[in-house]
Amino acid sequence: MSYEDWFRQDRLPHIYCAGCGNGTIINCTLAAVDEMGWKKEETIFVSGIGCSSRAPGYILTDSLHTTHGRALAFATGVKMANPDLHVVVFTGDGDLAAIGGNHFIHACRRNIDLTVVCMNNQIYGMTGGQGSPTTPKGCLSSTTPYGCTEIPFDLCELATAAGANYVSRWTSYHVKELEKAVKVGLETPGFSFIEALVQCPTAFGRRNKFRQVTDHVEYLKVHSLLKAKRDRMLEAGEKIPEDMYVVGELTKRSRPAMGVKP
């Protein structure tokens, strides 16, 4: 079996724009799920609202496409009602960190046995490119036409501080690494959070001087800083450049988890 068997072939091609990174993240997540050897009847995908949240609609298993920001609330319900199910959540930066911010921190605090994959395109893609809580400083969006002046959320640090058992960050360039990270997330009991930085050529790239999709992916590649290298730089007392994203396995621990069968 391969991860291609998890797609609803009749629903493809999907509606994402040409070059949208969401498709890549679905591939990597399904490849990891496939490696776990789980049955389709025992795996559930849950999402909120947004381009990223359309993902479960392209997957063969049972799924819930819920209300904006509430994916984690619904996923908690599914997991508590039947802890035998494997629950994977697809979400976007707006869905998870803006309207769904409270659900996010409390799901981390409770350390519920879910795996959450956040496709962070740093923008509200679906509604026409409004700035989100993760839009970087200086970036243009339809609500920040002179450049965003706010400090963005670091979703991984937020998840770690709130108590998640497993946290890692990769980008749509690092497909193999992302696949492995999702697999570790699926294996880890408790709340696993995987942030995937993705390109949104339509709402973000177009306004921020990424003429080609490949330019944005190249940007993500050269602005990724491996956690091990970051730690070495910190030890040597060097300054970490502000525009770098720390990638890798950021947190792995075994706090008591909810929804895990003893």
Partner: peptide, 14 residues
Amino acid sequence: QLCGVCQLTCPDQA
């Protein structure tokens, strides 16, 4: 499967 980065990367499963 060997390598396969193109297949994983292709956002459109093509």
